[in-house]
């Protein structure tokens, strides 16, 4: 090395107006525009699936089985992304699949979030035996591999979309409970909570009015990070046949169907649903990461 790495020539400071602009850029400049756009697009597609889908996602024509995407020989503009083993339009199934992923993802995160946050607050604020019980259960469940546990639950309750929501909620609430409890433990020692205690507020109103609003940020950050996990788990359960039941169009189910055509090279049945899952999960993770840094410095270690 010829120039020492820690010696620099200082550039002349730029004029103030430009500095102000760059300061703004630093605060908002790393906002994940593309991931947000992707998630919004998926949400819109899910809402307007009926209007957008060119075909019925659940009914195909057996004369049009295994059609490739339009740019390959044998493909046509009628089935832009090809058809599956029952002659159903892949694009339409993807569009309706977005609805399943969105609904399951958001609902499961909500269920897990509400249960986990409530139990985390109770555990952290009340302490004592309540804390002991909740945390022992949390630790045991956290130790179980979430996927195996979800498969087990799905196997005993049977497949349906709403069952999946409940199962994912039951599987993942522990992660909220752990984090939220930790937050509450430190909040409990804070000045405004002590003041509320001195002022004679009841335990319940302190938890609802003083503790809850202060852990909402963490819950939101955790929720955005959990969205990706939940969507992947849902796809996995559907892929294994214990998730969303056929003929409903779910991306994981489409991948499972796609296995049949894989060895003969019907790649579109495998590649497209997988890309959809990846895009959505990646977007959720990028937004979650950004939120974590912006909203909640305490969660940075997570």
């Amino acid at each position: 090395m010829s120039t020492p790495s820690d010696v620099v020539v200082l550039p002349s400071p730029s004029p103030t107006p430009r500095r102000a602009v760059r300061r703004l850029a630093i605060r908002f400049g790393d906002f994940p525009v593309i991931p947000t756009a992707i998630l919004l697009a998926v949400a819109l597609v899910a809402i307007f699936a009926n209007q957008l889908a060119p075909h019925n996602p659940e009914i195909g024509s057996l004369t049009a089985r295994f059609k490739p995407p339009f740019w390959q020989t044998g493909g046509s503009m009628k089935y832009i992304l090809g058809t599956d083993q029952l002659g159903r339009d892949v694009l339409s199934r993807l569009i309706f699949g977005a609805r399943v992923s969105m609904v399951v993802g958001i609902m499961a995160v909500l269920v897990a979030g509400v249960v986990g946050t409530v139990l985390g607050i109770l555990s952290g604020y009340l302490g004592g035996w309540v804390d002991q019980v909740i945390m022992r259960v949390t630790d045991t469940w956290l130790a179980l591999p979430a996927l195996t546990f979800a498969i087990f639950l799905a196997a005993i309750v049977g497949p349906s979309m709403w069952n999946i929501v409940i199962i994912l909620g039951v599987t993942y609430w522990t992660r909220y409970a752990r984090v939220i409890r930790g937050e509450v433990l430190s909040l409990r020692e804070r000045e405004f909570v002590r003041l509320a205690v001195v002022a004679g507020c009841s335990k319940w109103s302190i938890m609802a009015r003083h503790i809850l609003p202060n852990v909402v940020n963490s819950a939101i950050v955790l929720g955005s990070l959990m969205l990706g996990v939940v969507i992947i788990t849902e796809a996995t359960l559907s892929f294994l046949g214990v998730g969303v039941p056929p003929p409903q169009p779910a991306w994981g189910l489409m991948l499972s169907d796609g296995k049949q055509g894989l060895m003969v090279g019907y790649w579109w049945l495998t590649v497209f649903p997988g890309l959809c899952i990846m895009l959505m999960v990646l977007s959720a993770n990028l937004i979650g990461d950004w939120l974590r840094v912006k909203l909640d410095p305490q969660l940075r270690q997570l």
């Binding site: 992947i232 991948l255 003969v264 090279g265 495998t270 997988g274 899952i277 990646l282 993770n285 990028l286």
Partner: peptide, 23 residues
Amino acid sequence: ALLGLSLPSFWVGLVLILVFSVY
């Protein structure tokens, strides 16, 4: 790392089969 956490492992497996076994 983000890609690793965002790709379902079964899909990675399916694509691997597509590339290394089928093609």
